[in-house]
Design a protein around this nucleic acid. Structure first.
Lengths: 173, 173
DNA sequence: GCATTGACAGTCCACTGTGGACGGTACACC
DNA sequence: GGTGTACCGTCCACAGTGGACTGTCAATGC
């Protein structure tokens, strides 16, 4: 079991019915998209494997070759166990830090532009998260969804604080 | 050019000499390991490609088939341009958030244990970063290295704040 | 001296994750 | 009805991960 498979099973488990590959991609985008990416290719590959492992079951085909899947009893217990026993650690890949790490060899104005663009990007993202949070909160969404979104907010705030804490030796906006 | 290739060129550029694959893995671990992972397999694959592209040049072989590489003029200009023009966005993959997102279907005590373990882990990491920061600062390391480490500190602080901000409905330590 | 051992340099492979190209199908709109 | 478009799923090439494996050197102990 890998995280992608587990998240697909999680989505199928918590949707209370059947979802096709395309629907899973969409649902994943809104429900876990901010901290976990599911691409279409990945989703369909995993669905094939999950079916062969008996963790999901296809329902009756819909339009355009769409195949809705439903989680099985064994799929449910497997992914829940995976969540608590085999959860991998987080992986961080932050390209902008590469630019900072090697920033000493870059022209000062280019590094500054780079940092300014990233700063603007994160500012926008934070604003979007906050807005979304307010919406979901008033909509009475469950605490778990709010908690993951709240993580995003904490993260973006930290990034912005970091930008603003850069010492004057580093050309920053 | 991909981020891995760029970071290898960056390391070769800023080391002021030659490095073998093994040395690159080690140097990467200490210099950029906290926000970018380089595995051995990846490093050697990239080195082969970088040499065929003329971005690096092998020096005279050392013991145990070790091949030190030096960056070329074209390698230098290519990766520096990449840094400012083609830097990809950050990718975040945080498995613990999967457990939170689907936490509603988990037994409360299991979720709590999971969160407690993660909290302890991040607390330790933050302490380590802070220690390292103090060391590097007194050692008079350049501002760029301190800045990347500082990012790690901001990130870990944010994660811990998030843990502590979880609402009582979510079983947390 | 020589064998054993262990660390190290690099190779290889299977799997996971990303991104874009592609073909077929249904639906909406004229 | 015919056409465009959005959608469903497939496929492929590349990037990234992790572990198994070979060969080499050096230290250690006999």
């Amino acid at each position: 079991m890998n995280p992608t498979a587990a998240s697909l099973l999680g989505l199928l488990d918590t949707c209370g019915g059947e979802l096709t590959g395309g629907e899973l991609v969409r649902v994943a985008q809104t429900r876990i998209g901010d901290f976990w990416t599911l691409t279409r290719s990945q989703v369909y590959r995993e669905l094939t494997k999950l079916e062969s492992q008996g963790y999901i079951q296809p329902g009756s085909p819909g339009p355009r070759d769409s195949r809705p899947y439903r989680i099985t009893r064994s799929g449910r217990s497997t992914y829940r166990r995976w969540l608590v026993e085999e959860l991998p650690g987080e992986t961080v890949r932050i390209p902008i830090l590469l630019a900072v790490a090697f920033g000493g060899v870059l022209p000062a104005d280019e590094l500054r532009d780079l940092l300014a663009a990233a700063h603007a990007e994160h500012t926008k993202r934070l604003a979007r998260y906050r807005e979304l949070y307010a919406e979901l909160e008033t909509a009475g969404v469950d605490a778990y969804s709010l908690a993951t979104l709240s993580f995003g907010i904490h993260h973006e705030q930290a990034v912005l604080h970091w930008f603003e804490s850069l010492p004057p030796e580093i050309p920053s906006p």
